[in-house]
Design a protein around this nucleic acid. Structure first.
Length: 684
DNA sequence: TTTAGGG
DNA sequence: CCCTAAA
């Protein structure tokens, strides 16, 4: 909502396609066939890239006014640029359309583009996280702007470059772009200034933090590109860009493509790691995420110490403790921890405070909620049998994106944008998730479903699922636009273990989506995260893309995308909350077992716990198991709510009876009735 | 999906 | 409660 007032998306003169789907089809073909759309896309990419480039460059010179001397420019001079043509992938340069496209924007950027990657070497580019759904839809088609602003924002944070040199710095981001890109372009070209672009940039700069919160960074270093990821929170891995060696095989067909696709959760969320996406000396990824050190593939790579601490902190946290043990900690101190983590990452850099300020101010301004950048929590309060919950933010933790190495950062950002937008754009419908399971019965009451004020609602979540009909246009339900035919096959098979890029979007900067009733208790620390996922079923296109809102209370839950409970459950779904059996439940259980026996848990379930969705037959079986044990041990050794001895006696009795029954049945057919009279039971 | 058991 | 092998 904050964005609305400053919305001015777009180029008046040159509109960016809302969602460049066209190119996908082209890319899908895996050929280098160019189409108008393709070139158009390229143009955008280039434009975005150039803008970023110019920005960076000018940043070096423009900011020199104030503190040029003291800060070594990380950007290359024009001369250098011309000499660094190698940085840009030939694939792109070779594309006449690309160049052509560039000119469309009134820019003669060829030479400039050549070293784009290069120029970015020392720049940390931040990938935007997310935006509220309400904003997203409006942002469609403004990818370029977005990208540019991102670059700008990040540039200001560069060590040695971020200081007084930037007039707008003091005010965080506001106006920074105006001073930046717009001017940059002007300076660079001295003519043909693209007014529209400037306008667009201005918009973005207004409040960058509304767009992104998490700091995902792409770090380019010495002609090598390093993509790092770290979690704002200890558990979330927000950005992931990597490449797989095996991707090499299909590079050919999609080199120039940008893909967004769903990906399956990795084997283990706690072991997420950056993978190789493409093998390029310009696009290197740290293979050893474990230590947060980047491979020194060509000697040009170095560890990005600036981020190292953060990375280390977040990753280590995730790595060191088992989920189960961590969870408690997360719950109790997650917020604080994360905040510290965030500030740490911020203060760690020379431009200390820069980001923190932005985040803080923005967040507060936007929602009045403390800037818990990383932690997402949902608090449920119960009063008078009312279930209260509020969704404070949305998160899009997982997006599967793959782009060619020759793409620009701006393009990458746009690609991400597309993915998100495509899903949010088509309209959403809410689904309810409870303990990882989708609650489909709309007629059942919350209480019946297990959602009550006295229930632990940590596992309650909501999903936003785009209606297939609407979503179709932007994201073909039949075929993931993100998948190229030539690789689809492979994709499906290796999907499980290879998220190429994962974006975690988080909260703070996002206004609570109205659709989520987030304002219920405005200002509270209630928070709900929303995950963006894309489920791809084997052999078929993902027919279910969903935004999943889950209580961040559980870290695991964030990553949890219950859309595929079977495969995700073990890795992502948090352990169900403990729900001790009440005496009455035990009684019901005992009664049922007495009559049904100990081998028909499903029947027991149906008989006595039909409406207790939270009690599975496995639960009942387990409970019986413990009851038997409890009945066996001395009363002093028993724990928890005491079970009446009378019930325990019955447990023992029934257990004995059915055990005997079963052993008997071992040899011959058992046709005895299943009924057990009290007298009989007592006798056993 | 259920059962049956170990963790 | 979780996880799974088996059925």
């Amino acid at each position: 909502m904050v964005l609305k007032k400053k919305v001015n998306y777009g180029f008046s003169g040159y509109r960016v396609p809302v969602i460049p789907r066209g190119p996908r089809s082209v890319r899908r073909r895996g050929s280098h066939k160019r189409t108008v759309e393709d070139s158009q896309i390229c143009a955008f990419e280039l434009l975005a890239a150039v803008a970023g480039k110019l920005l960076l460059e000018s940043e070096g010179s423009a900011s020199s006014n104030a503190a040029e001397g003291s800060k070594p420019s990380v950007f290359h001079s024009k001369q250098e640029q011309h000499g660094e043509g190698r940085a840009l992938r030939p694939e792109c340069l070779d594309q006449g359309s690309c160049i052509e496209s560039v000119s469309i924007a009134g820019q003669n950027l060829k030479s400039t583009l050549r070293d784009l990657p290069r120029s970015a070497c020392d720049t940390v580019l931040e990938i935007p996280s997310i935006l509220s759904s309400s904003h997203l839809s409006k942002k469609v088609g403004h990818d370029v702007n977005f990208g540019i602003s991102e670059i700008q924002a990040e540039v200001e944070k560069l060590p040695g470059k971020v200081d007084g040199g930037s007039p707008s710095r003091g005010e965080s981001c506001d106006g920074c772009v105006d001073n930046g890109i717009g001017r940059q372009l002007e300076a660079e070209e001295n003519h043909n200034r693209n007014t529209d672009l400037t306008t667009a940039n201005t918009f973005i700069s207004k409040d960058p933090m509304e767009i992104y919160v998490n700091t995902h960074q792409l770090t380019y270093y010495n002609s090598s590109v390093q993509l790092t990821s770290y979690r704002d929170s200890r558990h979330r891995n927000n950005v992931k860009v990597g490449h797989r060696d095996d991707d090499e095989n299909r590079v050919g067909c999609n080199r120039r493509s940008s893909k967004i696709r769903a990906f399956r959760p990795q084997t283990r969320i706690g072991h997420r790691r950056i993978r190789k996406l493409l093998t390029s000396k310009y696009w290197k990824v740290a293979p050893k995420l474990k230590n947060y050190e980047f491979s020194n593939t060509d000697g040009g790579m170095k560890r990005v110490s600036r981020n190292r601490k953060v990375l280390h902190t977040s990753e280590r946290a995730q790595r060191e403790g088992p989920f189960k043990k961590r969870r408690l900690f997360d719950h109790s101190t997650g917020l604080v921890y994360n905040r510290e983590g965030s500030s740490e990452s911020i203060s760690n850099s020379p431009e200390k405070g820069m980001k923190g300020d932005k985040i803080g101010s923005t967040v507060n301004k936007a929602s009045g909620i403390s800037p818990s950048v990383a932690d997402h929590q949902v608090s449920f309060q119960s009063r008078e049998s009312h279930v209260k919950l509020s969704i404070k933010s949305f998160k899009v933790p997982e997006l599967y994106i793959e782009v060619p190495e020759s793409t620009t950062v701006g393009s990458l950002k746009r690609t991400v944008m597309e993915a998100v937008t495509a899903i949010l754009q088509g309209g959403l419908h809410v689904g309810v998730l409870l303990r990882g399971k989708s609650v489909k019965d709309d007629n059942r009451t919350l209480l019946q479903t297990g959602i009550s004020h006295n229930e632990n609602l940590e596992t309650l979540g909501f999903t936003f699922e785009p209606s297939s009909a609407i979503a179709a246009p932007s994201v073909s339900p039949r075929e993931p636009p993100v998948l190229l035919p030539c690789e689809k096959q492979q994709q499906l098979t290796r999907l499980p273990a290879s998220p190429i890029l994962e974006l975690g979007l988080s909260n703070a900067s996002c206004d609570p989506p109205s659709a989520t009733n987030a304002d219920n208790n405005g200002g509270s620390n209630h928070e709900l995260t929303l995950s963006l996922i894309d489920v791809v079923k084997d052999g078929t296109a993902p027919d279910s893309r969903a935004l999943v809102a889950l209580p961040a209370m559980s870290v695991e839950a964030l990553a949890v995308v219950p859309s595929n409970p079977k495969t995700r459950r073990s890795e992502l779904v948090q352990r169900r909350t403990r729900r001790p059996f009440s005496v009455s439940e035990v009684e019901a259980l005992v009664e049922a077992v007495e009559t049904l026996g100990t081998g028909r848990w499903r029947d027991v379930k149906m008989r006595a716990f039909e409406n207790a969705d939270h009690r599975t037959y496995v639960d009942l079986k387990d409970k019986w198991k413990t009851l038997v044990h409890t009945a066996t041990i001395a009363p002093q050794q028993r724990r928890g709510e005491p079970v009446p001895q009378e019930l325990l006696d019955r447990v023992l009795s029934a257990h004995g009876y059915w055990s005997q029954k079963q052993s008997k049945l071992h040899g011959k057919h058992q046709t005895e009735s299943l009924k057990i009279s009290n007298a009989h039971m007592g006798g056993v």
